[in-house]
Design a protein around this nucleic acid. Sequence first.
DNA 1: AAACAATTGTTGTTACAACAACAAAAGTAA
DNA 2: TTACTTTTGTTGTTGTAACAACAATTGTTT
Lengths: 147, 147
Amino acid sequence: MQSILEYQDFYNLLTGRTPQAFNRVLNKNFRQNGVELTKEQWSILAVLWENDGCSQQYLADKSFRDRPSVTRLIDNMEKDGLVDRKPDVNDRRSNLIFLTKKGKQIQEKVMNLVNATVEESIKGISVENIVTVKEVFHKIYQNLEVK
Amino acid sequence: MQSILEYQDFYNLLTGRTPQAFNRVLNKNFRQNGVELTKEQWSILAVLWENDGCSQQYLADKSFRDRPSVTRLIDNMEKDGLVDRKPDVNDRRSNLIFLTKKGKQIQEKVMNLVNATVEESIKGISVENIVTVKEVFHKIYQNLEVK
DNA sequence: AAACAATTGTTGTTACAACAACAAAAGTAA
DNA sequence: TTACTTTTGTTGTTGTAACAACAATTGTTT
């Protein structure tokens, strides 16, 4: 890391074309298979499939979003019939979010598409190198969070 | 990569909390130092600092955005007095984008902030591991682009 | 030259991110 | 209990992404 260009390269590495390409291909795979989900909606569903009936705050923590973002995602997903909001009788500040029948039924199809996209993307990459990427990103995250 | 959870982990790795954290810290560093730029505007300026007076299509290619996104970024940056649009006399379909005095003057300050943020983020990570991340991302990009 | 195709930029629409400000409810301390 | 603080969710605003559709211009083919 010496020149200005290399710093810009590193920025592009982290936030640039590869994550965008992955998102684009995932979206395309969704659409081509009749799955009308945004990648953000998928990331919320993935949390619910593991823990149905959790709060919006929990969804925000698990999906690395802030509360306003989750509020609006749930708004749209409720309109699309994927989830229902139910008030928490034990804490009236809180809503509990439940999968609808539709939200449950699409799990297998969606996860197959996600798995296929991930497998396609990491073809020819060794497990050691994937582990290294995970470790580097974890370290970067820690470096930035300490602040 | 065996279970559903690990695939989701990989998705989060690529598009998740670490890139978001980097963007958040970079934005914070901009604001705390009186630089009123979005990270997207910065990525456009970085291209112009290397090649002032290029077309919007060129900016789109270099910053990995589509044409509509660049149109609106330039709209906003023109309002903010960072760049000027000038018609290309040799090709009347095309605009040439030029840095204003303001757009040139902030280069040093902005690049110092970007460099500091990158350095902070990669503290304690070996050059070999950073190279591995670059290679893995390049391979992923190729895997997805072939499609 | 004329017809067709490709390129460049714009506009419209929908969806999301980030941040600030806020209200309601719950928790805590006096 | 009352007053203060924290938590949870919502709304407002601005900025961007992705995609479709389009106009103007340029390039290509015949």
